[in-house]
Write a protein that binds this DNA or RNA. Sequence first.
RNA 1: GGACCUUUAGCUCAGUUGGUUAGAGCGUUUCGUUGACAUCGAAAAGGUCACUGGUUCGAGUCCAGUAAGGUCCA
Length: 906
Amino acid sequence: MAAITKSYEPHDVEKKWYAAWLAAGAFAGKVNPAKSPYTIMIPPPNVTGVLTMGHVLNNTLQDILIRRARLEGREALWLPGTDHAGIATQSVVERELRKEKKTRHHLGREKFLEKVWSWREEKGGIILKQLQALGASADWDRTQFTMDPAYSSAVLKVFVDLYGKGHIYRGKRMVNWCPGSLTALSDEEVIMKPVKGTIYSVRYERTDAPGQFIEVKTTRPETIPGDVAIAVHPADPRYTSWIGKKVRRPIGPAAEIPIIADEAVDKEFGSGALKITPAHDKVDFEVGQRHQLAPIDVLTPDAKLNELAGPELAGLDRFAGRKKAAEMLKESGNLVKEELYENNVGYSERADVPIEPRLTWQWWLKYPRIEEAKTAVRDGHIKFYPERWSKVYLHWLENIQDWCISRQLWWGHRIPVWYAKGLDKETLTEADIANPKKVHVSLAGPADPQNWVQEDDVLDTWASSWLWPFATLGWPDKDAMAKAGYDYFYPTTTLVTGPDIIFFWVARMIMAGLEFTHPGQPLEKRIPFKNVYFTGIIRDQQGRKMSKSLGNSPDPLDLIAKYGADGLRFGIVSIAPQGQDIRFQEDRIEGGKNFCNKLWNACRFRQMNGEMADNSSVGAIMARIEPAKFDADDHAILDRLLSTTREVDRYFTEFEFSAAVQTLYGFFWNDFCDWYVEVSKSKLQDPATKASCLAIQDLVLRQTLLLLHPVTPFITEELWHLLGYGAEGTFIEDARLNNASQIAGQGLQPDSAAAAQVAQLKAVVSQVRAFKAEHGEAASKTSEFVVEATDTHWALLDANLAKLKRMMGAGAVARGAMSPNAPAIVTAFGSWNLIKQIKGDPAEEKTRLKKEIEAITKHVAGTQARLANEAFVSKAPPAVLEGARKQLADQQAKQAELERLLAALN
RNA sequence: GGACCUUUAGCUCAGUUGGUUAGAGCGUUUCGUUGACAUCGAAAAGGUCACUGGUUCGAGUCCAGUAAGGUCCA
């Protein structure tokens, strides 16, 4: 077996093992009825994306779950893939075209799509390669892309199916229009932002009574040419006599518009009158509908004013038009007031420009299975971690609106609808759409394509990714499903994602799963996943979201180069508590790297201290352990090993990953390295205890590697082999992780009381070290002590003396009476004198003792007061009461001893 | 306007069903490299647990309210 080097060098180890895993097909998920499946579908990253810290966290957690599942003997499938990301990808390619002063229209649909595909060929694999560098153990042979032929046909089949069921309709409605990307957006793609601007008070003059004006407030004077009415509340006494009269539009082509009454008007806002511009506001549109007022659209698709706005405004973009309109109002004296104003403006999530409410023809989806989707989460068939997100989910479902699924893009799944040639799409009625002679909807397309024109629009990206959990398993093709193991791996086990896409994706996947999988079977067979773990958002030191535009996100690949993939994984998980946003700290990643080095060196210590014996199975190691020779330290470390195993188990079932990692950190660093390895140094000198002590180390290291492997796969694989736990050609994942009772069942019954005794010994060591430091002897390894202790205490000390001397840096520890001239401390195991070349200053000693007495006296008083409280004595549980009494006794004993020492000094 | 989250050491955070003197990592100070690890070890300093009130023998923990910061929905 190779010798372990002085420090852990991740780079080569990572490369070596990743290649070996791939070569052996170690990540393949295969149908195996003897095992229970554990399935995770990756949230598909954008095909042209690069790895961010968010991906690192999210995918590390998925890998942890998958690798842990393998160690627990489950058949794990982690299915990877990418998303075509309609707007995002199209925008990137269009940006490239713009550099050549071209738009997609210069190329035409076909050529443009060729360009996007070649862009994908070039950039599409990057993020998956990066995930491999992180150690992701996904089944790469199953990699899926939402635009793959099979996946696409699933998407289109779903459209046709839902159309047939009456869930999909075409309608001219107000949509969120993105003037940047020239497409409709769903409500979920609109971000509300507070924007500081101006609100204008504008007056409209009555036609029948010149000189009389009605005033309205608006932030958008450029849309005045699109006004079709002024609305007031029917119960507003100020305007009762105005209703039915007409006013003149103050700008734009001359027109008289009516004053109407509508309940939607807020009497409290402004003057209580509202301009109605149905083409440019959702509420106004509804008011217009109620009063049969035809909208006037004064904007072009890219949000410039058109000729309907009048010659002065036509051609200006909306912001320039706003200024111009305000000037025109000022000139005509119709601008009453300008005030600074902050309101919420909807922005396009992708293009980051204000959206325009716009009346267009779009395809809409009435969601299926809304009620079942609520039940699934409310009744716990699907569990959310943290649970509180289920409220957000349910609230959204309660208020669900139809989904605008068409996009005026080219990159995406083109809607499988054909219109008969020569048909005017703008004037289609519902009856026309239902008429197969005019509108054809199918997967295959019409038999006589020359007579038809296909719909230009593509589907919203989320209308493909909502099928991810089952379309990736071959659905709806029976053969593909059998090959992929659909019946075995679906429903998937856990989804790991961010709460920001709870509506976009999580809710929609649930509805899709319920609608399309396992028809007729109970809900728990149709849900797409059983657990949803929501990660936090990674923020920078100032608490800002990490983003490309801010440039505040470190490149994960740099971090891997600097700290190793395992260090990065360990670090990121340790700072990511369930449900909380994460403030990124690079020093925690460094901590991850340091931990790996510690693990490495503890194994190195083991290797250097004795021949490696048979480590090939737990049984073989157990056979070398001699419980009859156990001392308290042996009992204690094994007891901690079992309790750590139990705790990590529990944290995994509760999805508390950072707690699991921190538990492992504390156990390994503090209990094992800082204490057990140190006390081993004495045991290893003694031939009577050496073999058993090494076997205990072998057992602890083996279990530790298994517990850590999901988090730090590379280093644990390497050490697994270096210490001989696994045969050549096998991997650590082929081993099974034993739980605490399984280990105990193999003949290991550590005495948990020993742990308490070791804790006391630790405290004594710590106390003596501090004592030495205080007297300038911190570095000395030959300090001499006299201990005045009871027989029991001395017996305990004596039994552990070699270890204790090494740990506290003592040359000699002898039993004897306290010398009044030497510095002294009181420990749980007797009083200790530090014997040194006594130039000890008695005055200093007195001060120190007095200070200690003062402190202990306070505690004694506190405990006494508690015990003197009759309510406490009569109501507190016996265990607490007894604890308090014992505490008081200990405190008083220490107090008395300190006072005795002080008196002796005098 | 509605819902949710956060507030504990200089920084980032733990603190499970209420129960000794509230913990960790980093940072700071002091000391230490003779064989696991300086990517390390030892010790120390550092906290009115945001505030107010309540429940309780006992509150960082439970309840109510207030304040500040944040997120989502409208």
